[in-house]
């Protein structure tokens, strides 16, 4: 019987090539991670250099205009603000109510899992489909027309799954001994929910709601379907007025950039306003989360 000896030289050579392979791939993995960040950096730098010089008080305060040098986006800012006036209460009431029902009231069973499955499926429906729902239901069937109320309700339905899931997680994170203590003092279920569980879960709920809100602010596709006019319209003064919104204005200026080249710069300037708004909202969400995290 012949004994096979290991060829030390061969093993050593193979080993070093395996190690080299490992190092090479590691570099590739790292480069891939950076790729996304590089694109993000290029995008931000490009948009800021293109749009920053167009941002001034006049641009922020003026009415829309076909004359690029006089155009302002106050109407779009107000439109976005009014949309939020509809979206915030609707999503908060329905989102938190649904979460309370699913987490604290519903018996584990078919109905509860049906509603939960339904919510997770809704989260995957493309936003443009919500636009068609809004067009059919709010604009046409209920005859609101393409007003702020219709746009706001459409966006509210769109971001509802985000709020529900965030609120569910926040409610779940409230420790059970808090509610047990409350029941022990003789409080009823609703009293416990309202006075003990909800306040404890509030930071988490607010964080989720703000993130949902920032999704709604940037959402464009459903609004394009509702038929938001590209025309010059007066500033909206209530939820029954027609409107334009920041992302819609970006959209119109971008597709018209082939006609008037300067519109592309106005679009870039509007994007800066939108991104700053989103940045502020997300910062608030992070602040809330850090300030109230894990007090128990």
């Amino acid at each position: 019987m012949t004994t096979k000896y290991m060829d030390a030289e061969l093993v050593g050579k193979r080993m070093s090539s395996r190690v080299r392979k490992n190092t090479g791939w590691k570099g590739l993995f790292f480069a891939s991670t950076l790729f996304g960040l590089v694109v993000l950096a290029v995008l931000l730098i490009r948009i800021f250099t293109q749009g920053i010089e167009y941002i001034n008080i006049d641009f922020l305060m003026n009415h829309l205009s076909t004359d690029a040098s006089r155009a302002g986006i106050m109407g779009a800012i107000l439109g976005t603000a009014w949309l939020m006036v509809v979206v915030i209460p609707v999503t908060m009431v329905i989102g938190v109510g649904t979460a309370i029902y699913l987490e604290l009231y519903a018996k584990k069973g078919k109905l509860q899992s049906f509603i939960a499955t339904n919510i997770s499926n809704l989260a995957g429906v493309p936003s443009i489909v919500y636009g068609l729902l809004g067009l059919t239901l709010f604009v046409r069937a209920l005859e609101f027309g393409n007003v702020i109320l219709a746009g706001g309700l459409t966006l509210a339905l769109l971001v509802l799954p985000i709020v529900i899931v965030a609120a569910q997680e926040a409610l779940r994170a409230v420790p059970g001994n808090l509610s047990e203590a409350s029941y022990g003092m003789g409080a009823t279920k609703w009293q416990t929910v309202r006075r003990i569980i909800l306040p404890a879960a509030l930071p988490g709920i607010l964080t989720g709601a703000i993130l949902a809100l920032s999704r709604a602010i940037g959402e464009t596709a459903p609004l394009t379907v509702l038929g938001i006019p590209a025309l010059l319209i007066p500033f909206p003064e209530g939820i029954f007025d027609t409107f334009t919104a920041l992302p819609m204005q970006i959209y119109y200026w971008t597709i018209d950039a082939s006609l008037v080249a300067e519109y592309a710069n106005l679009a870039a300037a509007t994007i800066i306003v939108l991104l700053v708004l989103l940045f502020l909202l997300n910062s608030i969400a992070i602040l809330i989360r850090n300030k109230f995290q894990q007090r128990y």
């Binding site: 009431v93 329905i94 109510g97 649904t98 309370i100 029902y101 699913l102 009231y105 519903a106 049906f114 509603i115 339904n118 919510i119 499926n121 809704l122 429906v125 489909v129 919500y130 068609l132 729902l133 059919t136 239901l137 339905l157 509802l160 799954p161 529900i164 009823t188 279920k189 609703w190 009293q191």
Partner: peptide
Amino acid sequence: FNQLERLVPSLLLIIASISVLTTVGIIYTL
């Protein structure tokens, strides 16, 4: 309060069913 206590679960169920109605609405209109 007892009445409120008894009313709350059904109120919440109505709210929770809005998400189901959204699905129904989407599928029905399409």
